[in-house]
Write a protein that binds this DNA or RNA. Structure first.
Length: 308
DNA sequence: AAGATTCACAACCGCACAGAC
DNA sequence: TGTCTGTGCGGTTGTGAATCT
């Protein structure tokens, strides 16, 4: 049948968003909630197509997005998850709720690809030592270690998922809550988001102030300013929260994953990972593309861990 | 200092799918 | 049942900044 384009090609502005546009968009969403994107350009007067508005919101303006440098832990998680899931950036992003799929994808394409390529040439054995262990260790020994790790992980996972304990100390939540409902269909989600919208507006206001002070760098700096603004609102900064938010079960679980994946140290990023484990990963196990060259059977771990 | 090249990443494109009508 | 709309997703492109020559 052929789907029509989401917007007219004529009269539609492209390129970087200006702070003013951001403000308009955030204000509108604050008032009406996300969703019905087709109506956004007409109601706001923005010369952007609905898709562009949605993308801008989901990737940059939405509250709860962590921007800036990726931590080592995030980096490693991405590497492992990419090996596990392939280029399913949205699925990978679901394990890193504060990062967008676009962000992860860009980071992969610009940094991690090269890094892994470099590693594969054999020079950097220190990175991801879990893999190197599994590759150099005799098979039987490795399997025993794997079984032990899996056992520990299963136990920790079941404890972590016990209803009375979970969700209490989460700095954020997984699945739908971590990614605010974009369809705006849920009134409850709207109400819980209102604070987020407000903070977004505040950030945008700050953003505009900064932009007015430094008008020359309008287009490109826009995103950078936005990025900083949102960073300021986040209690979860790159290194600051490496302690304290998730202890106990989640920490035990994290330790297990450290063991499983060979992560050197753990901070909240891994707690995120351990808390956000979803069966989704298993859905893709057959299609995983071990770009890293590692032969570690992630899908076996996932299957074993999550089949209960 | 100036032009060329590379890098990083925001944004766009196009396809697929689900749900509403 | 078919069409339309909204959304998700992965790949790709465009562009400003940084670096090199």
């Amino acid at each position: 049948m052929g789907r029509p384009p989401c917007c007219d090609k004529e009269g539609v502005k492209k390129g970087p968003w200006t702070p003013e546009e951001d403000i308009i968009l955030v204000s509108y969403i604050q008032e009406h909630g996300p969703g019905n994107w087709r109506a956004v350009p007409t109601h706001t007067g923005l010369l952007r197509c609905s898709k562009s508005c949605r993308l801008r919101w989901t990737n940059y303006l939405r509250p709860g997005i962590k921007r800036g440098n990726f931590t080592d832990q995030e980096e490693k998680m991405i590497i492992h998850l990419q090996a596990l899931l392939g280029n399913r950036w949205a699925a990978i992003a679901s394990y890193l709720p504060q990062r967008t799929d676009n962000d992860i994808k860009n980071y992969w394409n610009t940094h991690l690809k090269k890094k892994l390529k470099k590693m594969q040439t054999g020079s950097e054995a220190s990175f991801g030592n879990g893999f190197s262990d599994s590759q150099t260790m005799p098979r039987g020994q490795w399997e025993r270690r794997l079984q032990t790790d899996i056992h520990m992980a299963k136990r920790a996972l079941s404890e972590a998922l016990s209803p009375d304990k979970e969700m209490e100390e989460k700095p954020f939540s997984c699945s739908s809550e971590s990614k605010p409902a974009l369809d705006g269909s849920s009134s409850s989600s709207k109400s819980t988001q209102s604070l987020g919208y407000a903070s977004s507006t505040e950030n945008i206001a700050r953003l505009l102030k900064g932009w007015i002070k430094n008008p020359p760098k309008a287009a490109r700096s826009n995103s950078a300013i936005t990025q900083n603004s949102f960073n300021n609102t986040k209690p979860f900064s790159d290194s600051a929260s490496s302690e304290g938010t998730a202890k106990g079960n989640s920490m035990e679980l994290s330790d297990t994953f450290e063991s499983l994946f060979g992560l050197e140290s753990l901070d909240s990023s891994n707690s995120e990972f351990s808390q956000c484990l979803s069966p989704e990963a298993t859905l893709f196990q057959d299609e995983s593309k071990p770009d890293t060259g590692s032969e570690m059977p992630f899908y076996l771990l996932e299957e074993w861990l999550l089949d209960e």
